[in-house]
Design a protein around this nucleic acid. Structure first.
Lengths: 235, 235
DNA sequence: CGTCGTTGTCGTCATCATGACGATAAAGCA
DNA sequence: TGCTTTATCGTCATGATGACGACAACGACG
């Protein structure tokens, strides 16, 4: 089991990585992971490991895909179920017991152990597309946030710039996406902004599409259809 | 590994099932499945088993999700990677070597062995949503088809009725979805229809949304996020 | 205290995609 | 020659969106 834990720190997307302390790939960065315990479901195992690594309860956690290409792990055939979690900015993560070190690394990053580059890429793409049709961006935010902060999430994850006025209209207009708390705050400069909480909706309609993602026709991308097998090593 | 093989026969969606010849769940219907061989990737294993069951090469095949709830298989803890395939109508499937019988069963159907009801439901929902934002519906069609036949695919999978004129406009207007062969055929009655081939696009933009799927706000659904663990038995 | 820069929020407008639906074309059949 | 059926084109009103103007409400600075 591998975890792709994403968060936004200082305006940049970060992923939680551990530095491997044992072979293979000693000294290289890798996704945090572990084993599924007896009597434990996959979702439960992912939630447990997320808690072990970050001390957090699962805000948003979903199964990403399973990787099982032969040759992925030099020690033999191993299958890995990958999970994706989106987290608000949080304190320094607690280093896992079996990892030499754990830390948030800014994206993009490459050169990870095993096939973790590919898993990370899949997780990233999943996160990007989920922002389009779900109110999931709030998972990156604290309980209360401003529309501008929510917009920064989109801009950071999509590496794009959105029009503040149209974004405001879209987000506040979509039922169940966010709901006002009634309070206002002054973040930095300028006019005070309203505070919002995440709404109850779990689906966003109509979708909030990435600019340029479309034109008329379409390039290529097929979700998990083009996943390549992957290996699971465990520390 | 479990396979959710879907096809359309006589205007109804069908899934390929096998009748179990050995315990547990002897005599019950189950999804076809098998093991991943040494040196074989997950995608390759799914393609091989698809070929073994149907004699077909993978038209469209994608990883669905992995199930691993404890208690799923009475014989012990087993993980199952599920794959989804969409196939055109084809001759009677070849019975698998380890299955008492294999046949196409019309949906809806319930009472499958293990947690296959849940896997099937996930596969169905995946297929339904994929029709929205990908030109995947052509995977249910023969190489050449009419717009009406393509529309029947949507209507069958979505259990809905679509306006022929708007559908025609949408499909022929989306670049790369379908391309005319230049020929026409008379299917049943009425004016001859143009024949089309699937286009090169792999993504459909803008999406072709299910009627009623939206209104303004949104109910709930989160892809693979709410999957429940599942078990894998093998014949 | 007035002005400026900055940020939040509301409004307007043209464009595009869509649902509803009329109209015509091209076949078979009575 | 109608009549029925299916395919395909066209029209219209509506809703969502991108571009962008305008105003509001704060701090900072003179």
């Amino acid at each position: 089991m591998d975890l792709v834990l994403l968060t936004i720190r200082q305006g940049a997307l970060h992923v939680l990585l551990i530095r491997r302390g044992i072979p293979p790939f000693t000294g290289q960065w890798a996704l945090p992971g572990g084993f599924v315990l007896d009597g434990e479901g996959l979702d439960a195992a992912a939630a447990r490991e997320l808690h072990e690594e970050t001390g957090l309860l699962p805000g948003h956690l979903e199964q990403l895909a399973t990787y099982g290409d032969p040759g992925r792990d030099p020690r033999g055939r191993v299958f890995a179920v990958a999970y994706l979690a989106l987290l608000p900015d949080l304190p320094v993560p607690v280093a896992g017991s079996d990892a030499a070190a754990a830390s948030w690394q800014p994206l993009p990053i490459a050169g990870l152990a095993f096939d973790h580059d590919a898993i990370l890429a899949d997780g990233l793409e999943r996160a990007r597309s989920k922002l389009e049709y779900s109110p999931l961006a709030t998972a990156f935010c604290p309980p209360e946030f401003t529309i501008a902060e929510l917009r920064e999430v989109y801009e950071t994850v999509w590496r794009t710039r959105l029009d503040p006025r149209n974004f405001h209209r879209k987000v506040t207009g979509a039922a169940g996406f966010v709901e006002p708390t009634g309070e206002t705050v002054i973040r930095d400069r300028g006019r005070p902004a309203q505070l919002f909480r995440r709404g109850s909706a779990t689906l966003l309609h109509p979708a909030l599409l990435r600019p340029g993602s479309s034109s008329q026709l379409t390039p290529m991308v097929t979700d998990s259809e083009d996943h390549v097998a992957e290996r699971e090593v465990t520390e």
